[in-house]
C-alpha cells in the first residue's frame, strides 16, 4: 500500500468513528449501543475539560511573551493575580466535581441497567475458552438438542443471549466489540455475559486477555442472523456429518479415522469422538479455520493441515506428515463437512 493510501485510510478511520466488524463504536447490539452512548457523553465532557486546560495553558504562554527578565516573585501573596486565581481555582475544582459527578452517575445508572437486563427468555450458550480456541455449546430443550460448535457464535437478531463463560486452562476474555463489552473467562469461576444483538451481520470477536503464545490468533466469528435462518442453522448443526461420497472423500475419511485426527476431534456420526480439539462436524460451514487464523477455503484448510505450526506457531495441533495426495483427500473429506 502506498503511503498516501495509508494516510487516507487513517483519516477515513478517524472520521468514520471506527466502523467495522470488530469495532466498539459500530454498535450492533443493545449493550454496545448503551456503552456507545456513555462514550459519547464522556467524549464531550472530557473534551470540554481538555479544551479548557489547553486554552488556559495557551493563554499563559501567550501572556509570557510580555514577561521580561525581572526578579522572581518570592511571595505568592504579593501578586495582584493571587486572589482572582484562587477564585478561578475554586471554579475549576467545582467544574471538575460537577463533571465527575455527572459521569459517575451516568456510569452507575448505565451499569445498573446493563446488569439488570432481563434474561428469562435468553438463549443460553456455554462458551469454554482454551488455548487458543473457543468451544461453543447451545443448550437445547433436551440434552440431545445441544449444538456443539467451535470458534463461531451465531445469534438470532433481537433475542438476548446469555453466555456462560468457562475457561479450561488460563484466563481468557471474550470480546465482541460490536455487540458489547468484554468479560473474562477464569479457571475455577463461571462468569456470564449478556448480549442482545440488534443488527444482522458478520462480526468478529477476539480474546482480549493475554493467554499465551497464540493470544493473537484466538478469534471468534460472530454472526447475527434472522431468527428463521438461525433455527435452520441450528437444526442443520444437529445433524450428524454427511457420509463421504467421492472416492477421495472416502479415503480422506479413512485417513482421519485411522490417524491422529480422531484422537482429538469429534465428527458426529463417525467413530471420531475426541474432545480436546474443536468439534469438526460442520467444519465447512464456518467462516474461518483455527480460531480466525485463516479464512475458510479449501486451500487455506489444506495449508493448515499441512503445517499448522507455520500458520499458528505453538498451537496444539501437531504437524502430521502426509503425502500430497493424502493431504488432498483429507482436505476433501473435511471440506465435505458442510
Amino acid at each position: 500500500m502506498s503511503g498516501r493510501k495509508h494516510i487516507c485510510a487513517a483519516l477515513v478511520v478517524l472520521l468514520a468513528g471506527c466502523s467495522g466488524q470488530q469495532a466498539a463504536l459500530d454498535a450492533a447490539g443493545d449493550q454496545a449501543a448503551t456503552i456507545g452512548d456513555l462514550w459519547t457523553l464522556m467524549l464531550w465532557v472530557c473534551g470540554f475539560m481538555y479544551l479548557l486546560v489547553l486554552i488556559f495553558l495557551a493563554h499563559a504562554i501567550w501572556r509570557a511573551r510580555h514577561a521580561l527578565d525581572a526578579e522572581p516573585l518570592t511571595h505568592g501573596s504579593g501578586s495582584r493575580a493571587e486572589h482572582p486565581l484562587r477564585m478561578a481555582l475554586g471554579g475549576w475544582v467545582g467544574l471538575i466535581v460537577v463533571g465527575l459527578f455527572v459521569l459517575s452517575l451516568a456510569t452507575f445508572f448505565i451499569d445498573r441497567s446493563l446488569a439488570q437486563a432481563r434474561t428469562d427468555d435468553a438463549l443460553k450458550i456455554k462458551v469454554t475458552a482454551a488455548q487458543w480456541w473457543w468451544k461453543v455449546e447451545y443448550e437445547g430443550m433436551a440434552p440431545d438438542q445441544r449444538v456443539v460448535t467451535a470458534n463461531e457464535l451465531r445469534l438470532p437478531v433481537g433475542q438476548p443471549a446469555l453466555l456462560e463463560l468457562h475457561a479450561e486452562d488460563v484466563i481468557h476474555s471474550l470480546w465482541i466489540p460490536n455487540l458489547g463489552g468484554k468479560e473474562d473467562l477464569i479457571p475455577g469461576r463461571i462468569n456470564s455475559l449478556l448480549l442482545t444483538p440488534r443488527r444482522e451481520g458478520e462480526y468478529r470477536g477476539q480474546c482480549a486477555e493475554f493467554c499465551g503464545l497464540q493470544h493473537a490468533k484466538m478469534a471468534l466469528d460472530a454472526t447475527v442472523m434472522n431468527p428463521d435462518a438461525f433455527t435452520r442453522w441450528r437444526q442443520q448443526q444437529l445433524t450428524p456429518a454427511p457420509a463421504p461420497s467421492t472416492p477421495e472423500q472416502i479415503r480422506g475419511h479413512e485417513i482421519f479415522m485411522s490417524g491422529p485426527c480422531a484422537a482429538c476431534h469429534q465428527i458426529a456420526g463417525t467413530p471420531a469422538s475426541g474432545q480436546t480439539g474443536p468439534n469438526l462436524t460442520h467444519l465447512a460451514s464456518r467462516r474461518t479455520i483455527a480460531a480466525g487464523a485463516r479464512p475458510y477455503s479449501f486451500e487455506d484448510l489444506r495449508d493448515w493441515l499441512r503445517d499448522p505450526q507455520s500458520v499458528k506457531p505453538g498451537n496444539h495441533m501437531p504437524v502430521v506428515q502426509l503425502s500430497d495426495s493424502d493431504l488432498n483427500a483429507l482436505t476433501a473429506y473435511l471440506d465435505s463437512l458442510k
Partner: peptide, 8 residues
Amino acid sequence: GVSQWPPE
C-alpha cells in the same frame, strides 16, 4: 436413551 444424552 437417546434424548437424555448429548447428541451421539
